[in-house]
Every structure is written in C-alpha cells, then in structure tokens.
Amino acid sequence: MKAATRVEGHDKYHLLIEKAAAAGIIRVAVAHPCDDVSLEGAVEAARLGLIEPVLVGPQARIRDIATAHGIDISRFEMVDSAHSHDSARKAVEVVKQGGAEAIMKGSLHTDELMGAVVSREGGIRTERRISHCFIMDVPSHPDALIITDAAVNIAPTLRDKVDIVQNAIDLAHALGLDEVRVAILSAMETVNPDVSSTLEAAALCKMADRGQITGGILDGPLALDNAISPEAAEIKKIVSPVAGRANVLVVPDLEAGNMLAKSLSFLAGADSAGIVLGARVPIILTSRADSLEARLASCAVANLVAAARRQDAAKASH
C-alpha cells in the first residue's frame, strides 16, 4: 500500500491515517460527489484502505466527472439520485439500511446534508445533540487539538454544551488519547457574572465532577493562551492538570470556534479534519478549500470513530 501524499510538518495526520488504515475499511455513503475534488478525495481514501465508498448521486454526472479527470470508479457501488437533496436523503437511507457506517459530504451544501440527517421522519438523529469537531494538526504544536463546535451549533446553550463536550471526549478516546484534557474557553480564566461563557464553563466543570460528563478532565474558564501554553498558565499561577496542556478546546459559540480554527489554518499553517458526531454514524464534513491530506484525515477520523462504536457495541452485548 502506498503512503499518503505527505505535507511537510503534518506528522500527526500521517500517524492518524496509518492508524485508521490498520483498523480496517468502513463503508461510507458519499453524498453527491459531483465535482473532481470530492470524488478524488473519496477514491484516494479508498486506495489507502480507509473507506469503501458508496457513491450516491446522479450516476451519469458522476461518471462524466470521473472520465474527464481520469478517476477510476469502476469498482465502487453507486446509488442513483435526481439532485443534491435527493443525494442527501438517499445517503442517509443507505445508512439506515445498514449499507454504510459513515456519511461523507460531497459537492452539496452542508445544510442540505444535515437537513437529511436530522429529519424527524427519515433522519438518523439520536438523543445526543449533534455537534462538529475540528481535529487540528498545527505544525508548531506538539499535540493535535480538537476544537468544538465551529460549524453546527451557532449559539449553544449550557444543555447543548454538555453534549458538545461529551461528543468531543468520546472522539478523543476513539482517536486513542489516553488522557482527555478539556479546556472550556472564554476571554478570561476567572468567573465573571457579566460574561456568560465563564459561568457556563464553571457549571460544566462541576457537572463533570458530579458524573454528568464522563471520560475527560475539565477545567474552565480558561483563556486560549493559558489553555495551551504551559508558560502562560505558570505566569497566571493556574494550577491545573488541563491548563497549558489541553487537547480539547470547547469554544463559547460558533463564531469564536470558526475564527479560532481559521486563524490556526491561515496563520499557523494548520490542517483541519472535520467530523460531525451525535448522529447514528459519524459524518465527514469537508469543503473545497480542504487539502487532500485533510480530506484523508477526516476519513481516518470517521474510520476510528466507527471502529470504537463497534467495540462498544461488542462489549455491551456480552
């Protein structure tokens, strides 16, 4: 098996892809891969042993794109659809029928895909709030960073954040992190009654103390600098197993998360894999701006999440 195309400084992603390839292939319903970028990403992930794509979209259009760009799709199953909304609906149906363990976004709008996922009639919701995580590979930082939620929940409530945090912790364990250190971010590291994000951070930490959030060590409120920089935490005299060492960053709202993730991408050279959790299967969210490396990493993340869910189901059945 050939190695993935390497990007200088992204060793964390290379290791992630290799680990997922070792875990085995998962079937993925690729919703509307109707441009060369989304189709190539799915086919390359298949070549690396990460996924077996089920191509859901207008068959004639997908074949034309494959021919025009020299992409071999001859061995992949296809499900025909009329248009992008139909592709989203049928990708969800493939999952419901047991034909896939994950969904991958193709060249359709995120709202179209998520609308099918959360549909009360035909969707694949669970009791858990659906949320998004970026897995950021920052070349200058020793650990990968999970940032949530920068794409789905616009202004999450405290109740929403309980699920957002739990989704991120479960993801971290699926990725193989032995110790999940969660920083609840705000603009400051002290509780201020005038800043609601500091009150919610304190509440989330106490909820973890009471077993309402499990599997991780929480601290907050923390400002970004003293969440990821040991020096900043020491200067502020913050004594905590999380401060300066966080590997999960929970932002106050979508705007903060989006700005943080894009700042890391465009100013620090980070790549970002994207995954949506809280549905019956992981959902791979990518955009045209994503590098091939980031697309492959997103597939690798979904692969590891699906593998962890299979292990949990096997344990529960015994």
Rank of each mutant, 00 (worst) to 15 (best):
M1L: 05
T5E: 10
T5N: 05
V7R: 06
G9V: 02
D11P: 00
H14L: 11
L15S: 08
L16E: 03
A22H: 09
A29Y: 02
V30F: 12
C34V: 12
D35T: 08
V37P: 04
G41R: 11
A45R: 00
R47Q: 10
R47F: 02
L48W: 03
P58R: 13
I71L: 13
H85L: 12
A88D: 11
R89I: 10
V94R: 09
V95N: 02
K105F: 03
S107Y: 05
T110F: 02
D111K: 02
G115I: 01
V117C: 04
V118E: 09
V118N: 05
V118I: 14
S131Q: 10
H132W: 12
F134R: 02
M136F: 00
L145W: 01
A151Y: 09
V165L: 03
Q166Y: 03
I169E: 08
D170F: 00
D170L: 06
G176Q: 10
E179N: 14
A183P: 13
I184Y: 10
V191L: 10
P193I: 07
D194Q: 15
V195R: 00
S196Y: 13
S196W: 13
C205I: 00
K206L: 13
A208F: 00
R210V: 02
R210S: 10
I213M: 04
G216C: 08
D225C: 07
N226S: 13
A227V: 03
K237S: 15
S240G: 12
D253G: 14
D253L: 05
M259P: 04
A261F: 00
S263I: 04
A268L: 03
G269F: 00
L277E: 12
I284K: 05
R288P: 09
A294K: 09
L296M: 15
S298Y: 08
A300P: 14
N303C: 15
V305P: 06
A308Q: 10
Q311K: 14
Q311S: 14
Q311G: 12
A313F: 09
A314S: 15
A316W: 11
S317F: 07
S317V: 13
